[in-house]
Simulated assay, not measured.
Amino acid sequence: MNKTDQLETIRDYVFTLFREDETGHDFFHMRRVARIARRIAEAEQADVFLCEAAAWLHDVGDTKLFPNPNETVEKMNNFLASISLNEDQVHAINHIISGVSFSKGDAIPDTLEGRIVQDADRLDAIGAIGIARTFAYGGANKQLLYHPTNKSNSIQHFYDKLLKLKDLMHTETARALAKERHQYMEAFLKQFYQEW
């Protein structure tokens, strides 16, 4: 099986896992992150196949999304072996995935490919799509839209995470893409408060 076929098979596998997600971590999120990762990998001269494959799979085993994360990752690894990825590739994908999440704190992935996939995931968390995903996730988790004193709300998420992401991008390519998306969020918040 060639790399193109492997990526198509990975895409189909991801579709079965995420097609019904309502939190903003759906199949289309994975597709956007995979496309952005490929674009950054090509610009930054990284391993394009590894970046795209890991980007497709980056939320597999996320504790927010799967009740049995370890079992989910084990099934993913068996699947990857079944489509002829070698042990080094499977290990590299797992290593990339393990370092992507914002909840890991300030830890910077130790490979270029890991930094690229993290950048791609973070880019999909900001801008117009990021705004839409924030409210989808908040709604799915019965979170308030906004409240002036109760900090458990979707608008607070902009300050806790989204507005920080522009300055946390690792690659030049991602930094350039993040600038416009960040400005869009700032304009959205200004308009939101005016209307509120």
Results as ranks from 00 to 15, higher is better:
Ile155Glu: 06
Gly127Arg: 07
Gly127Ser: 08
Leu162His: 09
Gly114Lys: 10
His29Gly: 01
Asn150Tyr: 12
Thr134Glu: 11
Phe192Trp: 10
Met1Lys: 01
Ser154Tyr: 04
Asp26Arg: 06
Lys190Ile: 05
Tyr193Val: 00
Asn70Pro: 03
Gln89Gly: 07
Leu163Asp: 14
Ala178Thr: 05
Glu8Gly: 10
Gln183Tyr: 11
Tyr193Ala: 01
Glu20Pro: 02
Asn2Gln: 09
Lys151Arg: 15
Pro69Asp: 06
Thr4Leu: 13
Lys190Val: 05
Gln6Trp: 04
Trp196Tyr: 14
Glu52Ile: 00
Arg19Val: 05
Arg11Lys: 15
Trp56Lys: 09
Arg175His: 11
Lys190Gln: 02
Arg31His: 07
Asn150Ile: 01
Ala81Cys: 04
Tyr13Ile: 09
Gly139Arg: 15
Glu186Thr: 06
Glu52Tyr: 07
His29Glu: 10
Glu186Cys: 06
Asp121Gln: 07
Ala53His: 03
Phe192Pro: 14
Met169Gly: 01
Ile97Cys: 05
Ala46Met: 05
Asn2Ser: 03
Gln143Cys: 14
Phe66Arg: 13
Pro148Met: 03
Asp47Lys: 08
Asp62Gln: 07
Tyr159Gln: 04
Asn68Gly: 04
Arg35Tyr: 00
Asp5Gln: 05
Thr16Val: 06
Ala37Lys: 06
His157Phe: 14
Leu57Asp: 00
Ile40Lys: 01
Leu80Pro: 10
His95Gly: 00
Ala140Trp: 05
Pro67Arg: 09
Ser103Lys: 15
Leu50Gly: 03
Ile40Pro: 12
Ala41Asn: 10
Glu87Lys: 02
Gln194Arg: 08
Asn2Tyr: 04
Met30Leu: 06
Arg19Tyr: 07
Ala120Phe: 12
Phe158Arg: 01
Ile97Pro: 03
Ala107Glu: 12
Ile155Met: 09
Thr63Leu: 08
Glu180Ile: 05
Asp106Glu: 08
Arg115Cys: 11
Gly99Met: 10
Arg35Glu: 15
Ala125Pro: 00
Ala107Asp: 09
Leu162Gly: 04
Ser98Thr: 07
Asn141Pro: 01
Arg38Thr: 06
Met30Ala: 15
Phe49Trp: 09
Glu172Leu: 02
Phe15Pro: 00
Asp26Gln: 00
Asn94Tyr: 02
Gln89Leu: 00
Gly105Ser: 07
Tyr146Cys: 03
Ile129Gln: 14
Lys3Leu: 11
Val14Ser: 15
Asp47Thr: 06
Glu172Ser: 01
Asn94Thr: 08
Arg133Ala: 12
Ala41Pro: 10
Trp196Gln: 07
Glu22Pro: 03
Ala120Glu: 13
Gln191Cys: 07
Asn150His: 11
Arg39Pro: 00
Asp21Asn: 15
Asn78Trp: 04
Phe49Ile: 01
Thr111Leu: 09
Pro148Leu: 02
Arg38Phe: 03
Phe192Gly: 00
Asp167Leu: 02
Phe49Ala: 10
Ala174His: 02
Glu22Ala: 09
Ala81Gly: 08
Ala174Lys: 02
Asp21Tyr: 08
Lys142Ala: 11
Ile93Arg: 14
Lys3Asp: 10
Lys64Gly: 04
Ser103Asn: 08
Gly105Lys: 13
Ile155Thr: 05
Ala174Phe: 09
Ala128Gln: 12
Pro69Lys: 02
Asp47Glu: 15
Gly99Lys: 13
His95Arg: 14
Ile129Thr: 10
Lys179Asp: 06
Ser154Ala: 15
Asp124Pro: 04
Leu163Pro: 15
Ala92Leu: 06
Lys104Ala: 11
Thr63Phe: 05
Asn141Ala: 03
Thr9Phe: 00
Phe192Tyr: 13
Leu189Met: 08
Arg32His: 10
Ser101Gln: 12
Gln118Met: 13
